[in-house]
Design a protein around this nucleic acid. Structure first.
Lengths: 115, 115
DNA sequence: CGATATATATCGACGGTCGTACTATGGTCG
DNA sequence: CGACCATAGTACGACCGTCGATATATATCG
């Protein structure tokens, strides 16, 4: 799963949201790092709906603007959870190797004694 | 960064390796989950070399078979570290939301009292 | 001798994302 | 009042990393 898709699900994990709301929420949730493009978002919502991870949850007109709402399905919740586990594990594995590497290079390339 | 690319870097974080060795190592490192395709691997190695994250580290012939070795550059090490941080953070954020969601649904949909 | 593992190269196809352009309404500022 | 920005959604061509398949070559095992 790619990052934009991941944040669409993560955003909807918070509850019922409409497209533009997801964009804003994802940006906040990622500390400004992930700015979903409209094309990416609606393509993802269609795809995720077809896959059953997301469901349409009503169209409303607020302040004269049409909104399409969506919610996470149980399947979507499970997918997000699995993906989060996977990423956490991957990150942990990579970190472990990087720590080892740093320790090794500290021995191989001693710049200044820690004493 | 996509998962295959991430594991190519993570594998090389362990030290100098050749293509096929990376495939085997990535599979092990990911508990069998990530099986790099040869096309993906060599394309990634070329790309990463062009980007300066990876460097060619000598061709050798072992048991009559040609091997192309690669190592991580400092830039590659930094990229991998940054990517691991990012994924760990994303996963943590998603988990937090899922926990909240579970707590909320437990109140909304009480199945059996915990008492 | 045929099958499997090692080792690399190449290439068309696919799919998710990006970038851009477009339509439309409401609110703010000069 | 007109210009501009935020909100809200639609549409589409292009890009790029990955996949799947095919190919070549050597060593080993049965």
């Amino acid at each position: 799963m790619r990052e934009p898709t991941f944040f669409v699900l993560a955003s909807l994990a918070d509850g019922r949201k409409h497209g533009y709301g997801i964009i804003k929420d994802a940006e906040e949730l990622s500390d400004g790092r992930v700015r979903l493009k409209v094309g990416t978002l609606y393509a993802a919502l269609e795809r995720l709906t077809a896959e059953g991870l997301v469901e349409a949850a009503g169209d409303e007109v607020v302040d004269g603007r049409a909104r399409r709402y969506f919610v996470l399905t149980d399947s979507g919740t499970a997918s997000l959870a699995a993906e989060a586990e996977r990423q956490a594990l991957n990150a942990a594995r990579a970190r472990a190797r990087l720590t080892q590497r740093a320790a090794k290079s500290a021995v191989t390339t001693p710049k200044a004694a820690t004493a």
